[in-house]
Design a protein around this nucleic acid. Sequence first.
DNA 1: CATGAATGAGAATTCATTCAT
DNA 2: TATGAATGAATTCTCATTCAT
Lengths: 202, 202, 202, 202
Amino acid sequence: MAYRRSALMEERLAANRERILDATRELISRGGLREARVDAVAQAAGLSTGAIYRYFPSKAELFVDALEAAVDREVAILERIAEGPGSAPERLGAAVASFVDRALRGPNLAYAFIVEPTEADVDAARIRCRMRFGEVFKSILRSGIARGELPDQDVDVSAACIVGAFTEALVGPIGPSTPERADRDRLIDSVRGFCVAAVGGP
Amino acid sequence: MAYRRSALMEERLAANRERILDATRELISRGGLREARVDAVAQAAGLSTGAIYRYFPSKAELFVDALEAAVDREVAILERIAEGPGSAPERLGAAVASFVDRALRGPNLAYAFIVEPTEADVDAARIRCRMRFGEVFKSILRSGIARGELPDQDVDVSAACIVGAFTEALVGPIGPSTPERADRDRLIDSVRGFCVAAVGGP
Amino acid sequence: MAYRRSALMEERLAANRERILDATRELISRGGLREARVDAVAQAAGLSTGAIYRYFPSKAELFVDALEAAVDREVAILERIAEGPGSAPERLGAAVASFVDRALRGPNLAYAFIVEPTEADVDAARIRCRMRFGEVFKSILRSGIARGELPDQDVDVSAACIVGAFTEALVGPIGPSTPERADRDRLIDSVRGFCVAAVGGP
Amino acid sequence: MAYRRSALMEERLAANRERILDATRELISRGGLREARVDAVAQAAGLSTGAIYRYFPSKAELFVDALEAAVDREVAILERIAEGPGSAPERLGAAVASFVDRALRGPNLAYAFIVEPTEADVDAARIRCRMRFGEVFKSILRSGIARGELPDQDVDVSAACIVGAFTEALVGPIGPSTPERADRDRLIDSVRGFCVAAVGGP
DNA sequence: CATGAATGAGAATTCATTCAT
DNA sequence: TATGAATGAATTCTCATTCAT
């Protein structure tokens, strides 16, 4: 009996943790880090303020975990594309398009984890996340250069520029509103074209 | 009876105002809008908290003025390049290089005026600033397309991507520290190359 | 899962709210609106500053509620007298005496809700309160005039004068200290006599 | 030469002092004590903030002096009426009418010196002023009782009620705006009638 | 373990008063 | 003496974190 109850509880705890992370992501994607108060997160997660602190030691750690969870998923998808078939320009284009497409559909953290300084702890996580994105693109670029599909270049800078380019395209002229399907496709194409050409793709 | 404000005082006031704006820019460029508290700005400017309110009606207006002052200078320089001689790719490259170069030398607000939500007032200014930068690049792109120096493209998206690319290149792999001269030149070249190639330049 | 707020807690919250309102009334009745700082109210209520904002959204609303709560009670009592039996002069005298009597016993807000400009919000409430008092007396006067118990007169002015007369009698020669029982009775009689005679009563 | 300059200066100083007092009265009569900031007074007087402190050691003392100056004039006028010819009810009515009339014409301090708590210093002055007004009315009442023109009564209370009545009539239903001439006359008559009847006049 | 009321350290802003010019 | 810029204490309000129930 002790076992079963424990298992049940275990599940519930995990579910709560997930709900908190989801609520955090949701709130950040709407109003930025600034608007994501602990109270608001708790309410959105259907829990009490105090409960948050059972799952996360501080607001900063909660944010860090939320950012990293979101980036985990994103990077996993991008890595599959990066390691998949096709030429480097093709894979680069696909990765960019994939990211932009997803960002345009649902609530995304592009706002928050790219450039938005906060407390030191969160900021460190933000930088780590940015670099992880960069790594994916760097791996594509390196393979392309090695195979002669792309000209030689400073992959650190190119990767950073790519990340910056599509982020700005997302949060900049478009804003948080979801554009029409046709607009979306055109935007994705434009960004993809920009990034592929930038690194010397055809 | 009427008291004529002495030239000396006039100067000192102007100097104070400038010092406040400088301090604000300095603080923002280091820790973002969040860290730039009125107290901190005052201290950095060598004044008391209350004095700030003699020069600016509110923290929000101070920030707006600081952002716009910085952007005024920046945009003026970029516009001169945009309207100058040379092909569109050349001018684009020169503009990008010029911006990155300056940003790498002194404290820059790239952090703040690109993406960092805050109060509504400041945010509105931030968006205006971003658009002003975008406009400069759009004008270059349009002229290039008209003259056949650049392929047809969505100039809105391209301009946003350019702004995002060099901003990220600045805050991303490099951070606030000023790199060595050689590194700096290499970085500038890489970013320029990225942006020019991205829009279809040679 | 849903947490039912316990009856005990419910009670405590209500008690706290009441304590805050009481503390506010107490402080206002001593030092006027000016001295009733949020800190002071909190301390007098045995709570922290922040706690006040759990019960009232702003200092202004707290004041408005405190004023209106006090006036609600007062006006209810006066209305019962106004609508009760007896001639108009009798009822007027009874109403005045009743108000003065109560004011002399406990902390009274006479100071605050009669004349003391503050923020717009609070001021609006103050004016409303004053008018509500006036209305009670006007109703008595009108009925008296209709029945021929009182001579015709400008009831607006008379009501204002009545309110002013007993308010001043309260805050003026006496001040906040509670006088002896005999003095109190004499004061009440004098004020009552003054007001009844003023409007043409016997 | 030293003499002449001194006399000139003397005059100018006195004129400035008067201007400051006037400005203070003006501001208080408009927005109450709260709105009369030292800066505002200085500007209204055509002087600098610092200059105020040459003439008055503190804001509190400035206010006290302004109140007392205003009351000096007022009381002098009322005393002349009180000591003049006519029966007590006549003189009482004339005094009340005179005060109300003047208050309705120009900026008046009725707001401030009757009921409006502030700092302790100013408050003490306020109470003194109130009592001085009371004294005038008490002297009328006493003479009326002595001569058999008025019934015996508690002159302290009656005087306070009179002051309260006309004050409230002034600041209450009418407010700071100057009413039409006809309205004004009617108001004066009503208040006079109220006060005279209140103390047992015909 | 969950709750949400309470805490209290900030942060922005105001304004009486001072003091270098 | 006059000026008005500068000061800084005081005040309102916010929000991450704690803790009794």
